[in-house]
Nucleic acid binder design. Structure first.
Lengths: 161, 161
DNA sequence: TATTGTTATACTCTATAACTATA
DNA sequence: TATAGTTATAGAGTATAACAATA
């Protein structure tokens, strides 16, 4: 049993269920649980490929931006460049991407999908689309667009208060 | 710069920005980013107390369910009982909760908030309410309720497909 | 035998500091 | 000096297996 109650004040332990206090009404809690459930579904669909959602994101971005620098890929995905390295190492070791030196600036590495990478990506896209279709079925026709809009409003950093 | 484009097909690297392909339309991506931003805000508000959102959740549930067993707390929070132990150890070491033996079944530990724990919880609740108020301001009057409803539809496990 | 809390362990994601080679 | 990629490391969250005490 997970959190499901939204009452704010109830100082005594209830009969069968547990009173979660204000947690049931907190977006932080609801977001964490929904994100975990959604991510678990996507991970399960990807398992046979030996690839995680993070790897899929890399392949997807590289398909649309061949020759992208690692730094720009890092910015686009919101993954620190230092954490991108082992992900790229794995994809390169499996022959799904290539790192190529750049003529003008020898510090830079340009990233490309291999044919094998493009082939695997096509499979992953099909899985991801089925995944999204399941979510859309749960949310209803307008629910998915509404949810994307609401989530976007929360995504920018919240410095000022 | 983070992902922000929703176009599906564009095979060439764009001028300034990066084409994120289908990632921009994926709920999995939007959820991860929103959850991270929201969680970062809550963590920042809690920092001065030396407590994390997970600790707050424990204190909040114990306030409403004094004497709760560890196993039931684990179920209520969705945290494995094995991962609850170090969190409870920290809270007990700081004198915020107490573990008490139970008469009928000596395997069981009952958990209680101390006075200090209740005092800290009151502060954390105020911080959490301010946090939620900021989110509500971003989402609009109905947005928050809509979001909670949409997230709840995604939270149940998605076994069947 | 089964259950409760615990320990040990491992994997993923994330974050910072420091190194290299280039510029 | 500064930048791009890398290495090493550490923290937090989550997962399983196995143990001791108790039922």
């Amino acid at each position: 049993m997970l959190i499901g109650m939204q009452d704010e004040d109830n100082a005594v332990a209830p009969s069968g269920a547990v009173n979660a206090g204000m947690l049931g009404g907190m977006l932080s809690v609801a977001l964490r649980r929904a994100q975990a459930a959604v991510n678990d579904d996507l991970v399960a669909r990807f398992t046979a490929t030996g690839v995680r959602p993070g790897h899929f994101g890399i392949l997807e971005v590289l398909k649309h931006n061949p020759g992208l620098r690692q730094g720009h890929l890092s910015d686009a995905l919101g993954v620190k460049r230092t954490n991108l390295v082992p992900l790229l190492d794995m994809l390169e070791a499996r022959g799904l991407i290539e790192r190529q030196a750049v003529a003008g600036d020898r510090r830079v590495t340009a990233l490309f999908l291999t044919d094998g990478g493009a082939a695997l990506l096509a499979q992953l896209q099909t899985m991801a689309r089925a995944h999204e279709a399941l979510l859309a079925a749960r949310l209803g026709p307008d629910g998915r667009a509404q949810l994307l809009d609401l989530l976007a409003r929360l995504t920018t950093p919240m410095a000022g208060g």
